[in-house]
Structure formats: C-alpha cells, structure tokens
C-alpha cells in the first residue's frame, strides 16, 4: 500500500503515513472545507493497514494547533478504531498528543480524548 504524504493547507494539517514503519503523523490546523473528502481516504487506508498489519504495532502522533468540531468527530473515530483493534485483535497502539508547553487548551482537549481510552497508550507530551 502506498504511503501517504499530504502537505498542510491553509485549513488542513500535514499528514504523513509510513505503513512499513507503522507510523502516522498529523500536524497543523484542522478545519478542512470538506472533512469527509479530506479524511475519508486517510481513514480507509489506515483501517486497511491495521487489518493487514502482521506485527500489530502502530504509532500515531498528533500535533494540532486548532481543530473544529467536525474534525473532532474524525479524531474520535480514529481513537475508537484504535481502541477496537487493541481490544479485539490485540494490537499495540500508541498515540502521542504533542502540545506547546503553554497551550493548556490543546492539552485539555487531549486529556478529554484520553479519558475514554482503555487499551491503547495515550501520551501527552510537550513539543
């Protein structure tokens, strides 16, 4: 499967997926004009990768400055998908939520997602 390299736009983050390494990185602001159009292909590719991932390890890093409510819905879907693969298929998935040291807001948003997570590792780290 081809790796993903999406450059950051004015309203959309940079997304890099390296399937061989088992990593994904999302960096920047997220309020794309059309959330489904933007994230749809990335989410399908990620799900395909997880389905066929033999070593069952995956690392996903987020470094977001702002995201709107439609993007929050996508994030929730990603974390729920990770949780499902970890719980039902024994995958070992780590999420790194990178924030600016002074960005309490983004830290709190990360903490809110982390609250619902049981079987994946969710770490909030300073940039």
């Amino acid at each position: 499967m081809d790796n993903i390299n999406i450059e950051a736009g004015e309203r959309s983050p940079k997304i890099t997926c390296d399937w061989e390494k088992g990593t994904m990185e999302v960096v920047g602001e997220s309020y794309p004009e059309n959330v489904t159009e933007f994230y749809g292909p990335v989410l399908s590719a990620m799900e395909n990768h997880l389905n066929s991932n033999k070593n069952k390890k995956f690392l996903c890093a987020f470094e977001l400055l702002y995201f709107n409510s439609s993007s929050a819905k996508v994030l929730m879907r990603i974390f729920d998908m990770f949780e499902e693969f970890a719980t039902s298929n024994g995958h070992s998935i780590s999420v790194i939520w990178r924030v600016d040291e002074e960005d309490d807001n983004m830290r709190e948003l990360g903490e809110e997602f982390a609250e619902d997570i049981e079987n994946i590792k969710f770490e909030i780290v300073n940039k």
């Binding site: 959330v35 709107n68 409510s69 439609s70 819905k73 929730m76 729920d80």
Partner: peptide, 17 residues
C-alpha cells in the same frame, strides 16, 4: 462526537455544543 450524523444534518451536529 460518537453519534451518527443526524438526519438532515450535514455537519457533525456538535457545532452548537
């Protein structure tokens, strides 16, 4: 955030919240 998009609602339905 987890709910399916409401009928007639094109957005995430969470904007007002």
């Amino acid at each position: 955030l987890r709910a399916d998009t409401e009928e007639g609602s094109k957005g995430a339905g969470v904007g007002l919240i």
